[in-house]
Design a binder for these strands. Structure first.
Length: 326
DNA sequence: TTCCAGGTAGTCG
DNA sequence: CGACTACCTGGA
């Protein structure tokens, strides 16, 4: 089946900038691939593979969204629309957010730099767990490449009119993958050609020492951690339980809760947010990440996730970030 | 070529 | 608990 629908701007509360939302480097998933004016990604809807292509007519935020979808199976269009709304934060009330930001002189300047920027939620919570672990102590460009690589090597391939697309592997598949080249060689048959290249192992995806965390995390999600239950848990309880996953500390946990489970009160505190908050609210006095996280949660409450997103984007584009480099 | 960024885990007091 | 360091890789 292949069809399309539109979402008009009147349906949204406040502005929306599709390009900005996808390309602002948020830590939930790699940006969707751009092709022919559309951003596209293979997404599961009703548990069925669905290629979703989305485009915003006119970049001035007034244009409607056009969504084309394609699937080998029958899917209710309503569910595809709901998925798109969820992924791009289209149900978030940005007018309300801007009212909140305007009350704080430190936050108000961010609005102009971030018009229409929304939280880019993960379409696959397990992928979000793994990409958040991969992102720790790592550049955006590197973990993004790693996630693409993992999909290519172990995801399921689906053919569409525009070509092949790969899903993110399930926890049981990823949990059974060789950690590094050594393990792959040990597991392989011994009648391989002399020059055989061993690259079906996690470390060959550029994840470095995080490979063992990723495999253990996959096994935990398969056996003892129920992601569906996490969504329904209160923020604090969910935070504590995912800290048990190897490779997940406070920052990664907050990324998972914010982007993977829609907990808007999470305040992921990386070095940049730490510096920005220290600069804006503590006269540059170097605060500890745990203090900054607590400060963000107390002061920004349900908007904490958005404040983090807006502050980082604002700092990067206003030149503040460069000033804060040591 | 070496140096460095970037969160977490592990160790030591 | 706090302070400190090793970890892997790619880019400067």
């Amino acid at each position: 089946m292949k069809n399309q629908f539109n979402i008009t701007p009147e349906k949204l509360k406040g502005p929306f900038n599709l390009h900005l939302t996808i390309c602002s480097g948020q830590t939930s998933q790699p940006p969707w691939k751009e092709d022919n004016g559309y951003f596209q990604e293979l997404v599961l809807v009703e548990g069925k593979p669905c290629l979703v292509k989305i485009r915003q007519e006119d970049v001035d935020l007034e244009g409607k969204l056009n969504i084309i979808y394609e699937s080998p199976e029958e899917i209710h269009e309503k569910n595809i629309e709901a998925k798109v709304q969820e992924i791009f934060g289209l149900n978030d009330d940005l007018n309300q957010l801007y009212n909140f930001l305007n009350e704080d002189p430190n936050l108000a300047p961010a609005i102009d730099f971030c018009q229409g920027l929304r939280l880019f939620k993960a379409h696959n919570p397990f992928e979000c767990v793994i990409s958040s672990i991969s992102s720790a102590n790592c550049s955006i460009i590197r973990w993004t490449r790693s996630i693409q690589d993992i999909k290519l090597k172990w995801g399921d391939a689906y053919k569409f009119s525009s070509g092949k697309h790969y899903s993110f592997p399930s926890p049981n598949v990823l949990g059974a993958v060789p950690e590094h080249e050594m393990e792959e060689i040990q597991r392989s048959e011994d009648d391989l050609p002399e020059n055989f290249v061993f690259e079906n192992n996690l470390q060959s995806c550029g994840v470095g020492y995080r490979a063992k965390y990723i495999i253990q995390a996959a096994k935990m999600v398969q056996n003892e951690i129920n992601l569906d239950k996490l969504v329904k848990m209160k923020y604090e309880k969910a935070f504590d339980s995912i800290l048990d996953i190897p490779g997940v500390g406070p920052k990664v946990a907050d990324c998972i809760l914010l982007y993977g489970f829609g907990k808007g009160e999470a305040f992921p505190t990386d070095v940049w947010i730490n510096r920005i908050i220290s600069h804006l609210y503590f006269k540059g006095e170097n605060k500890k990440p745990s203090e900054v996280r607590a400060f963000g949660r107390e002061n920004f409450e349900v908007y904490a996730g958005y404040v983090q997103l807006y502050l980082f984007h604002y700092a990067r584009n206003s030149g503040l970030l460069n000033k804060l480099k040591v």
